[in-house]
Nucleic acid binder design. Structure first.
Length: 154
DNA sequence: GCCAACGTTGGC
DNA sequence: GCCAACGTTGGC
C-alpha cells in the first residue's frame, strides 16, 4: 500500500466535511504534478493524510483512503465552476481526480510546525522550502512517524 | 494582510 | 525558446 498527503483548506472542505460526506471526489486540482500522482500512481485503498492548509493551525487533521481509480474531473467542463477549464478537450480531458473516503479524524491536529522540527522525516515534499504541491507522496516510514505525533505532546 | 516561492502565460 | 509579468499558494 502506498501513502499520500492531500491538502485542503478547511474553510472550503475540512476533515469534518469529509466525515459527514463519507466519500468525496477530490476535484479542483489544477497542477500537473499533483494530477499525475492521482492519475498514474494512486491505487484504491492507498492511505491518505488529510492536511489542513491556509488556516490558523496548518497540519494533518485526519486519515482517508483512495476510494476510486482516477477519472476525469467533471468540474473542468462546468462553466459555472471556478475550476472550469475552457482549454480542456472533452475527448482528452486535462484534469483527473480520485474519490477519497473518510477513515478517521486524528485525536488532535499534528501541526506542520512539529513536522518541520522532526528530523526523522528526512526529505519530505511537505516541508521542502517553497513547496506548494497539494497532492504528494509519503513514505511508509514518514506515515508512521507522522501518526506517532498524534499521541505525543507537541 | 503580507509576501516569498512557484507555475503558467504570452510577447518577442 | 527566453523571460517578464501575472496569478496563486500558503505560512506567518
Amino acid at each position: 500500500m502506498q501513502h499520500w498527503l492531500m491538502k485542503s483548506e478547511p474553510a472550503v472542505f475540512s476533515i469534518d466535511d469529509l466525515a459527514r460526506k463519507g466519500v468525496e471526489p477530490w476535484d479542483g486540482v489544477r497542477n500537473y504534478q499533483a494530477r499525475n500522482f492521482m492519475r498514474e500512481s494512486m491505487r484504491i485503498g492507498d492511505g491518505v493524510l488529510f492536511y489542513h492548509s491556509n488556516c490558523k493551525e496548518p497540519g494533518v487533521a485526519g486519515i482517508a483512503e483512495v476510494a476510486s481509480k482516477a477519472y476525469p474531473d467533471p468540474s473542468q467542463f462546468d462553466r459555472s465552476s471556478n475550476h472550469y477549464d475552457a482549454g480542456s478537450p472533452r475527448a482528452a480531458p486535462r484534469w483527473w481526480l480520485v474519490d477519497v473516503r473518510f477513515v478517521r479524524k486524528l485525536a488532535r491536529v499534528v501541526p506542520l510546525a512539529a513536522l518541520q522540527r522532526d528530523e526523522r522525516l528526512g526529505d519530505f515534499a511537505l516541508t521542502r522550502r517553497g513547496n506548494r504541491l497539494s497532492v504528494l507522496p509519503v513514505t511508509t516510514s514518514q506515515w508512521r512517524i507522522i501518526l506517532a505525533h498524534e499521541r505525543q505532546n507537541a
